[in-house]
Design a protein around this nucleic acid. Sequence first.
DNA 1: GCCAACGTTGGC
DNA 2: GCCAACGTTGGC
Length: 139
Amino acid sequence: MAYWLFKSEPDVWGWDQQVARGAAGEEWHGVRNYQARNNMRAMQIGDRGFFYHSRTGLEIVGIVEVCALAHPDSTTEDPRWDCVDIRAVRPFVRPVSLEAIKKVPALAEMVLVKNSRLSVQPVTEAEWRMVCDLGATEA
DNA sequence: GCCAACGTTGGC
DNA sequence: GCCAACGTTGGC
């Protein structure tokens, strides 16, 4: 199983909306960046991801799970763009802020820190465990 | 709201 | 195929 991080501006699509989708999940549409798309194409059913609020919030608020493999993005005719579906698994007991992550030397290599503009990012297993610990949340 | 960093586009 | 111009993202 692989680990990922999904970024969204909560004003546009937030954790609460994701939770409201329930087990059916929701298309992670709107990605128009090749790296992010390639990450989604590499995902398997059951892969886990962090749900991060960008711009307003700047914190990881929950854990999601991939529930559909990459398929054409329904919001565009352009065949280049694919996306997966994800569903909420559980919220973080304590959200983990970007600030808190930056304070941990072992997390300095996280893509979130190194390349903050990438909207769908890989997360290593070690990073995954550490962030879940910071959030007092089951991995 | 600003602006640095980054990705994409398109003329040459 | 280069690179300048442009648009977008996202932390601050």
